[in-house]
């Protein structure tokens, strides 16, 4: 499990999948979620396999989440804000006609 070393900043509260998450001001959404024990942030678009942050520097797009209704946001490139509604991105599977 990830944990936070002592000496963190002001608390910021937001939600992930409806669950309350307490972050520290200045955290990225990805760091806050990892620190709160949430590693599985989305289902891959192709197979639906679980995915979580990989590079944390904006390159891999594995930490994409939906934030306040906007899909495809990079959790590692977005700073937490009070009251944010963060959701997992669901898989979009082939519609079967293909």
């Amino acid at each position: 499990m990830a944990r936070r070393l002592a000496g963190t900043g002001t608390a910021v509260r937001f939600s992930f999948e409806g669950m309350a998450v307490e972050a520290s001001a200045g955290d990225t959404v990805a760091a806050a979620l990892l620190a709160a024990g949430h590693r599985n942030l989305r289902a891959s678009a192709v197979s639906g396999a679980p995915r979580g942050p990989y590079c944390l520097m904006g390159a891999c797009f594995d930490c994409m989440v939906s934030i306040d209704g906007v899909a495809g946001r990079q959790a590692c490139m977005t700073e937490v804000a009070p009251g944010m509604d963060v959701r997992r991105m669901a898989a979009i599977l082939d519609d079967g006609e293909g």
């Binding site: 499990m1 990830a2 944990r3 936070r4 070393l5 963190t8 760091a31 944390l56």
Partner: peptide, 12 residues
């Protein structure tokens, strides 16, 4: 990056 930006570490 986790350490630098949020002082978060993985324990396991």
């Amino acid at each position: 990056i986790l350490l630098k930006t949020s002082a978060v570490v993985e324990d396991d």
